[in-house]
Design a protein around this nucleic acid. Sequence first.
DNA 1: CTTGGGGACCAC
DNA 2: TGGTCCCCAAGT
Length: 803
Amino acid sequence: MKIASVIVDVPTKQTDREFDYLIPEQWLETIQPGMRVIVPFGPRKIQGFVTEIKGESEFKKLREISEPMDLEPVLNKELLELGNWLTENTLCFKIYAYQAMLPAALKAKYEKKVKLSLGVTLNDLPAALHEVFEKGEEILWEDALKNGLVPILQREAAKGLLEVIYLVKGKLNKKKLRFVSPLLSPADLEAELNALPLRAQKQKDALRYFVHTPEPIELRQLSTDLKISAATVRALVEKGLLTEQDKEVYRDPYENRTFTRTEPLPLTTDQQEAMGPILGSIENKLHEVFLLYGVTGSGKTEIYLQSIQDVIEKGKEAIVLVPEIALTPQMVNRFKGRFGNLVAVLHSGLSAGEKYDEWRKIQRKEVKVVVGARSAIFAPFENLGIIIIDEEHETSYKQEEMPRYHARDVAIERAQKYNCPVVLGSATPSLESFARAQKGVYKLLSLPNRMNQRALPAVEIIDMREELREGNRSMFSRKLLELLKGRIDRKEQSVLFLNKRGHSSFVMCRDCGYVMNCPNCDISLTYHRVHEQMKCHYCGFESHVPTQCPECSSDYIRYFGTGTQKVEDELGKILPEARVIRMDVDTTGKKGSHERLLKEFHEGKADILLGTQMIAKGLDFPNITLVGVLSADTMLHLPDFRSSEKTFQLLTQVSGRAGRHELPGEVIIQTYTPEHYSVELAGTQDYDLFYNREMMMRKAHHYPPFYYLALITVSHEQLITVVGATEKITAFVRSRISNQAVVLGPAASPIPRINNRYRYHCLIKYKREPELSKTLKAILDQYQNDPKSGLLVSIDVNPYILM
DNA sequence: CTTGGGGACCAC
DNA sequence: TGGTCCCCAAGT
């Protein structure tokens, strides 16, 4: 038992396996599977994950582990195994799988430095280097590169005067505070106190304090409270009366917040019926997947809360996933309010340090519940009792980088191990999940009614073509404008929703139709008013806004599409009295501004909340009685088989923001395609009908849930090369797949070029292909590790974005 | 005969 | 990924 198998932090095909290392004597007791270690790899030192401890190795010339990076494993046995599952299912490198499970703060950073060899002094070096090594004995390789010192350094290194060292920076700044506590009993302290000389008043003060309160206290606190210095305390420590120690403390992002404790609410009959099977599954330790299908405002969250309550009472733990944009303070409050400090929150708004601290609470079993976005599915619990995924249909649960996992799949995989239920909640379930519920793979639980029997808001669909025909060229229909005015008069609030995705503000010449495109990527540039610039969203290319058309020199070159900024400007013109809060990436960039803006709106400091996707979810303010969707169909025409589904879900979600409390709500949906079923049925809020219509479409076109998908994307700087390679790959897939499957391609990707690389696709639609995984792996084997060809091949199993 | 650039291969 | 080893071609 002295050899460790290690997955090293080198993401390549050839190193995507275990390497064996000897465990040095002094670490024999320490090193365990799941720990991060620093290991020598070739000439450098890198991070690795210990996956196994074993007695012997095939490999003869083993090297030793340099040092452990953790005192306890950061991955438990279950997560280590889950890593294998992720690797298999998403075709990623093991190292990516493990890194995805940990907070970013635990990812190693590397430093390469040059320093003087032992016993070498400045004078041994050529004069040119004296200045360089004057300050310290080491310099960063990067700096050497910048200053063109590499050749000289190499020369001296060859002579043995200098050496290159590699550092793995895994040191975490755990926030530590110094605490002071007494070493003696109060009575003994009292005696010592009296023995102190008269002039040691400050020391006496300190001891007197500890006679009364023997608990540890933070040094800073003690010295401000008693107006004594740290030196005074030090003196007492040296006399052996007190002791100092560093304690790890957490950066608590919710430190200065108080959460009103809530008690479980009485459930409606509907809720009780829906919760019964979940509790049954918890009770009987059964792994089951429930689809909790409940209209907006039907009280799903209370079911989550009470199920979790039950799980906690059984001494187990719960993971709650929420889409990133819905991780609002409101949502956090509900969980913190019910479970207090048993809750850890993980979302992208936290700093790396804060995220790490929240994760530590989980690791140290100090919390029982995690509420977080996608990656919280990897919370290192060891006794899971339930996993809840709210807004199950959200596409943000699919990670688009390696490992390309879907949190729902990971949830089910983990829940199976723990024999516990998974609850998928949604008002507009994804077709995949609803279909599974219909087939009985998932158990369907329905909440058909809003709590307190509030009617769903009245929805009216406005045909914007009609408006245009009647001479209204603004982006607000007459009806919407009239209703907005009414709300302002009545001091009620409105929400205006703009779906910017699809056609954001681009620049087009009205004379010749020229559209400003990115020179590197085949997509139009987006206009940003803040810097008066055109930007490419894919490669970051920036350019000035033209005043003249580059093609025909016309001055008549204008912005098209409607950004939130433009809507705000126009609102200012036609409704100057309206107070507007705008929420989009530009106004919520800074930490906490999201929360601040919502608070202002909640306090009635504005009449209209104008925003993008981020306001579609979780808003629950009593005074909102009007929701306006400015253009319902912007995402409808994206080249994506899910665009109808997304449109329907989004419109339904947004509509649900209105009239959630006493005041009844109204919804206006403006559209250029009122006849499209996803718009029409969002108007009547008829999910079941939508489901049936959409299922027919999916069946007809061989899409999920009838077929599984796998997408192969190939890119290269040369068009001919991509096409050739994609043709080969496509032919290879065709030759290895049954005739039940459909293989599309080679075809140009919907974004045919990004960053000067042409992109081609091969899309595989299949039902059951046991050999497919092997085929895909073979393709990766062939192309993934072939940098000389310049080809990049990526494979997304169950893709959510087909671009 | 040196120098330097590029590709193949390896790492435990 | 970073490094080294090895080969080949151009330069002294």
